[in-house]
Amino acid sequence: MDSDLVIIGGGQAGLATAHVSRGLGFTPVLLEASQSTAGSWPYYYDSLTLFSPARRSALPGAPFPGDPDGYPTRDEVVAYLTDYAGGLDADIRTGYRAVKVATDSNPRPGRRFEVAVESGESFTAPIVIAATGAFSRPYRPDLAGLDSFTGTVLHSSDFRRPEEFAGRRVVIVGGGNSAVQIGIELAGHARVTLATRHRLRFMPQRVLGVDMHLWLRRTGLDTAGWARRLLTGGKGTPVFDTGTYRAQIATGNPDRRPMFTRLDGDCVVWQDGTQEPVDVVLLATGFRPSVGFLEELGALAEGDQPLHHGGVSTTHPGLGYVGLEWQRCFASATLRGVGADARHVLTRLRESMPRR
Score class of each variant (00 low, 15 high):
residue 1 M to E: 03
residue 2 D to E: 15
residue 2 D to P: 05
residue 4 D to T: 04
residue 4 D to G: 07
residue 8 I to F: 07
residue 14 G to H: 03
residue 17 T to I: 03
residue 20 V to F: 00
residue 24 L to H: 00
residue 25 G to I: 07
residue 29 V to L: 00
residue 30 L to A: 02
residue 31 L to R: 02
residue 39 G to V: 03
residue 42 P to A: 00
residue 44 Y to L: 14
residue 44 Y to G: 03
residue 48 L to Q: 07
residue 48 L to T: 09
residue 50 L to T: 02
residue 50 L to P: 01
residue 53 P to Y: 07
residue 54 A to F: 09
residue 65 P to G: 06
residue 65 P to Q: 10
residue 66 G to Y: 09
residue 73 T to P: 12
residue 74 R to S: 01
residue 80 Y to R: 10
residue 82 T to F: 07
residue 84 Y to S: 13
residue 88 L to S: 04
residue 88 L to Y: 07
residue 91 D to F: 09
residue 95 G to N: 10
residue 97 R to M: 07
residue 98 A to V: 13
residue 101 V to Q: 09
residue 102 A to D: 14
residue 106 N to C: 11
residue 108 R to F: 04
residue 112 R to M: 10
residue 113 F to S: 09
residue 120 G to I: 08
residue 122 S to N: 10
residue 125 A to H: 02
residue 126 P to L: 05
residue 127 I to R: 05
residue 129 I to W: 12
residue 132 T to V: 06
residue 139 Y to N: 15
residue 143 L to P: 05
residue 146 L to D: 11
residue 150 T to D: 10
residue 152 T to H: 08
residue 152 T to R: 13
residue 156 S to G: 09
residue 157 S to I: 11
residue 158 D to S: 14
residue 158 D to N: 14
residue 161 R to E: 14
residue 162 P to L: 09
residue 164 E to C: 02
residue 165 F to M: 11
residue 173 V to I: 10
residue 174 G to W: 07
residue 176 G to R: 03
residue 177 N to D: 15
residue 179 A to Q: 02
residue 179 A to S: 08
residue 181 Q to K: 12
residue 185 E to N: 09
residue 189 H to L: 04
residue 189 H to E: 13
residue 193 T to H: 05
residue 196 T to W: 00
residue 198 H to T: 12
residue 203 M to C: 11
residue 205 Q to W: 11
residue 216 L to T: 04
residue 225 G to N: 13
residue 233 G to C: 13
residue 234 G to V: 15
residue 237 T to H: 15
residue 239 V to R: 06
residue 240 F to A: 15
residue 241 D to M: 11
residue 244 T to V: 11
residue 247 A to L: 11
residue 249 I to D: 03
residue 249 I to C: 04
residue 250 A to C: 05
residue 253 N to Y: 03
residue 254 P to I: 02
residue 256 R to T: 15
residue 258 P to W: 02
residue 262 R to Y: 11
residue 263 L to D: 09
residue 274 T to G: 13
residue 278 V to T: 15
residue 280 V to C: 06
residue 285 T to H: 11
residue 286 G to E: 03
residue 287 F to V: 06
residue 287 F to H: 15
residue 289 P to I: 03
residue 290 S to D: 15
residue 291 V to W: 14
residue 292 G to Q: 08
residue 294 L to T: 05
residue 298 G to S: 10
residue 307 L to K: 12
residue 308 H to I: 05
residue 308 H to Y: 07
residue 308 H to M: 07
residue 313 S to L: 04
residue 317 P to I: 01
residue 319 L to N: 10
residue 324 L to D: 02
residue 325 E to A: 15
residue 331 A to T: 08
residue 331 A to G: 03
residue 334 T to W: 00
residue 336 R to Y: 12
residue 337 G to S: 05
residue 338 V to Q: 01
residue 339 G to P: 00
residue 339 G to F: 04
residue 340 A to L: 09
residue 350 R to N: 03
residue 353 M to F: 05
residue 354 P to M: 12
residue 355 R to L: 15
residue 356 R to H: 13
